[in-house]
């Protein structure tokens, strides 16, 4: 129920609003939700703001697309060619749990201090869970389901498209959701650290100048972008399972 969800969130925001107005919460640190929402609303018509949203959105979209496509393909290859899988899966898993973000100085040297460096770093980080989850999803497909297809004399392509893929989809898409999280974190964090690009830089600036409302507006917009991508991923998953 959408209504119930929205009401639940509205109640929480209303409580914060009251807490800030009665100064239970310090307005210096926490702005009124109403002003943040108003800020988000007016940002839609503010060219500067929109430009920054576009930069962040573009970086996230590009990095996620690269990580998603490359990750699913590489995961497929690691599953299909066993020796490769045996050799590289543990390595990918090890990389996945290491702080790759800290490689950013190298990326700056390679790509320069620009969006390309941010996108490359985010894609590199996010490709890892996508590879791992895709490989594991395909390996874990129930043999009995495949035998149903084989007993129907299905072609390899149909077996893949109509049994392997939908059976593996839930796990692959879990990987993609994790990938999205990484892309968002890396893109915004790099924008913040490097002071280039969109919303991450805005967060940094607002924090520096103690503009609490702008800070929360930026964070709010990042949340909106995240929600939009999650929606997109859910739609893709439904498509894979048709």
């Amino acid at each position: 129920m959408w209504i119930v969800r929205i009401v639940m969130i509205a109640i929480f925001l209303a409580l914060v609003e009251v807490a800030v107005r009665t100064e239970i919460l310090n307005p210096f640190f926490v702005p009124e939700p109403s002003s943040v929402l108003a800020g988000m609303a007016s940002s839609v018509t503010d060219g500067d703001f929109l430009g920054m949203v576009a930069i962040t959105l573009g970086a996230v979209l590009l990095a996620f697309a690269i990580a998603g496509i490359a990750g699913v393909l590489l995961g497929f290859v690691l599953w299909r060619i066993r020796p490769l899988g045996d050799a590289y899966e543990p390595l990918v898993a090890a990389l996945f749990s290491s702080p790759i973000v800290l490689l950013y100085p190298i990326f700056l040297v390679i790509f320069g201090r620009n969006s390309a460096a941010i996108i490359a770093l985010a894609a590199l980080f996010a490709v890892l869970p996508t590879i791992l989850f895709t490989k594991q999803a395909l390996s874990a497909v129930n043999r009995t389901l495949l035998n149903v297809g084989r007993s129907l004399s299905m072609s390899s392509w149909n077996l893949f498209r109509h049994i392997m893929l939908p059976a593996a989809a839930p796990t692959i898409f879990t990987g993609l959701r994790i990938a999205l999280t990484y892309v968002l974190i890396v893109v915004v964090a790099m924008e913040y650290i490097l002071q280039i690009g969109g919303l991450g830089r805005l967060v940094a600036e607002s924090a520096l100048l103690f503009r609490a409302t702008d800070l929360y507006v930026s964070v709010g917009l990042i949340v909106v972008i995240s929600a939009a991508f999650i929606w997109l991923i859910n739609q893709l998953e439904r498509l894979a399972q048709r």
Partner: peptide, 10 residues
């Protein structure tokens, strides 16, 4: 088949 073989996504 003996094992469960219905497609959970259908």
């Amino acid at each position: 088949f003996q094992e469960e073989s219905t497609f959970p996504w259908r």
